[in-house]
Every structure is written in structure tokens, then in C-alpha cells.
């Protein structure tokens, strides 16, 4: 079965063969049926190295259709190498429309961020995941971690948080902050900043997670309860920033530090480039606007 191909007759639509896509879709369906559970799948070799988002790319390839509009971000930015390459890849192998606008996209593949603009029903967020097992660094044996998930033995997760507080006086985990899904499975949200954790909770969008090297897919169906683990006396909090974005003046968003010169000059700007540009387009201005451009 060949989807419309046009000038790319030598590839099947979206690069993967149909059997593989079916296999991945089955894994995705199972993952949606058991929110937060890691479903093994037969990850394929992709024309890019592991660590460059092969898991996310395979998930996207399995769900993308000719009418989808794709956005790809890396650390919130549409214009970094990884994002540009993956976007170009799907333009070439699936001939789909691409965008940098969050609200226009039907599929958003992401590395390490969730867009600032709230997602809508019908949108799918595809995460690239390096290490899907939240218990991995605490318990190296896969046989044991699977058993721990099966039997809901998650004391170890709190051991990690305990260690943080003991060492730093607070929970110092700032990214890949573990969450509990629908009160059952503990899940690694991929290395997104914990700032983004609350966005996963009850999101109207479908969230899919693909780990290529580790051969795992997991999912959060729309409107899933996602709770960040914490202690009663050390509750979960997100990062806050002293200043608004230097370019668009946005507050309550995740900021990146940008070094301006060799004399220690720096500024904080939105990590979500689309969000920042949209706001600037609407006339919002931050303090340093002008010095940067």
C-alpha cells in the first residue's frame, strides 16, 4: 500500500514501511490503553543516529497522514539543528505541510519542552525520549524495574527525592521530574523541565512518548491525571524567574539564558521561540529588545 508519493517514489510514505507502522501503531494503542505504561516495540534503524530523536520520529512516522501539519521543536526552538533536520525529513518523506506556529500544528514533535501555548483537542504532542525508565538510575536491572512497575513498588522513587532534599535542602531535580499517571504508573516525562510538568496534567491533547534506542513507547491520552511526585512537607513547585522575557516581556514562561558578550552580559528570553515571536508580532516588547536584533 502506497500513500501519495509524488517526487519521492523511492520511499514509502513517511519513510517506514507499512508493516512497521502497523506494529508501532499497535504499540501506541496499547500505550494509550494503559496510560504511563512502557510498551516495548521493535524500534527500527532510522537515517539518523540514536539520541537524535529516532523514537519520536518513528512515532510521528506511524501517525502522520498527508493532511497533517507538523511542527518540530528542540528545547522549545523551531530553528535549531535537530528541529530543522527532522522537519525537513518529514517534508521530504511525507510531503506534509510544516509550521512553526503551535496553534496551526496537528502534530508537534518535541525534544525537552512543551509549548507555552496550551494545546487543544485534536493535537498530538510527540516526545523524543532518551531513557524511558524513571527507575533506571536507582535500579539498573530491567527485570527488577518491570516487576516494580507491575507491583506498583515505587518507594525507590521517593528515595531519589529524599536524597535531593538531604543533599540540597529541597528537591533539586529540575528536569525529567517523575510523575504518577492516573494514580498508577510512575513515568519519566522525558527531559523536559519540571516547569512543564503541570502542562501534562489533564491536557486535551494526546501525548505520545517514543524512545528509539530503548525501544519503548508510552502515552498519555487526553485528560489524563498527571501528578508530580513530592513529599507532604516538600511539595512540588515549578521554577520561577525574576524577570520577564527580555524580548517579548512574557512572564510565567520558561526562559533560556543567552550570553550577549564576553563581559558577562546576558539576558533571559523565552525558550519557546514561537511563543516569543507571536507576542512580539502582537506588539509586546521586553527591556532588551533592539540590542539583540
Amino acid at each position: 500500500m502506497n500513500a501519495p508519493t509524488g517526487s519521492i517514489a523511492s520511499y514509502n510514505f513517511a519513510y517506514l514501511d507499512e508493516q512497521t507502522k502497523r506494529m508501532i501503531r499497535r504499540a501506541i494503542l496499547k500505550a494509550i490503553a494503559i496510560p504511563g505504561y512502557q510498551v516495548p516495540f521493535a524500534s527500527r534503524e532510522m537515517p539518523m543516529p540514536y539520541g537524535w530523536g529516532t523514537g519520536g520520529v518513528q512515532v510521528t512516522a506511524a501517525i502522520i497522514g498527508p493532511h497533517d501539519v507538523l511542527k518540530v521543536i528542540d528545547q522549545g526552538a523551531d530553528d535549531t539543528t535537530n528541529a530543522v533536520s527532522i522537519r525537513a525529513f518529514f517534508q521530504k518523506v511525507a510531503n506534509v505541510a510544516v509550521t512553526t506556529r503551535t496553534d496551526e500544528a496537528t502534530i508537534i514533535q518535541t525534544r525537552h519542552r512543551i509549548p507555552e501555548q496550551p494545546l487543544k483537542a485534536g493535537q498530538t504532542l510527540v516526545y523524543q525520549v532518551p531513557i524511558p525508565e524513571p527507575l533506571r538510575f536507582l535500579e539498573p536491572r530491567e527485570t527488577e524495574t518491570r516487576k516494580m512497575h507491575a507491583l506498583e513498588e515505587y518507594g525507590l522513587m521517593h528515595v531519589k527525592l529524599y536524597e535531593d532534599i538531604a543533599t540540597h535542602g529541597r528537591i533539586a531535580t529540575t528536569y525529567a521530574y517523575p510523575v504518577k499517571v492516573e494514580g498508577r504508573y510512575v513515568m519519566d516525562p522525558s527531559p523536559t523541565p519540571k516547569f512543564d510538568n503541570p502542562k501534562m496534567h489533564m491536557s486535551p491533547a494526546l501525548q505520545l512518548f517514543g524512545a528509539g534506542r530503548e525501544k519503548r513507547i508510552y502515552a498519555l491520552p487526553p485528560f489524563t491525571r498527571v501528578e508530580s511526585l513530592d513529599f507532604d512537607d516538600h511539595p512540588f513547585t515549578v521554577q520561577t524567574f525574576d524577570k520577564p522575557c527580555a524580548l517579548c516581556g512574557a512572564e510565567g514562561v520558561y526562559l533560556d539564558e543567552v550570553i550577549l558578550d564576553d563581559r558577562g552580559g546576558h539576558m533571559f528570553v523565552c525558550s519557546d521561540t514561537d511563543h516569543c515571536e507571536s507576542r512580539q508580532g502582537d506588539g509586546h516588547r521586553g527591556q532588551q529588545e533592539g540590542t539583540f536584533r
Binding site: G155, L156, H158, V159, Y162, I165, F231, D233
Partner: peptide, 13 residues
């Protein structure tokens, strides 16, 4: 503390 956390103790102090 691990065993305590394993049986659901969620108070660091």
C-alpha cells in the same frame, strides 16, 4: 527510610 517510603510515608521530616 526506603521501607517507610515504600509503604507510603510521604513526609520527609
Amino acid at each position: 527510610g526506603e521501607r517507610l517510603m515504600a509503604v507510603g510515608d510521604r513526609h520527609y521530616g
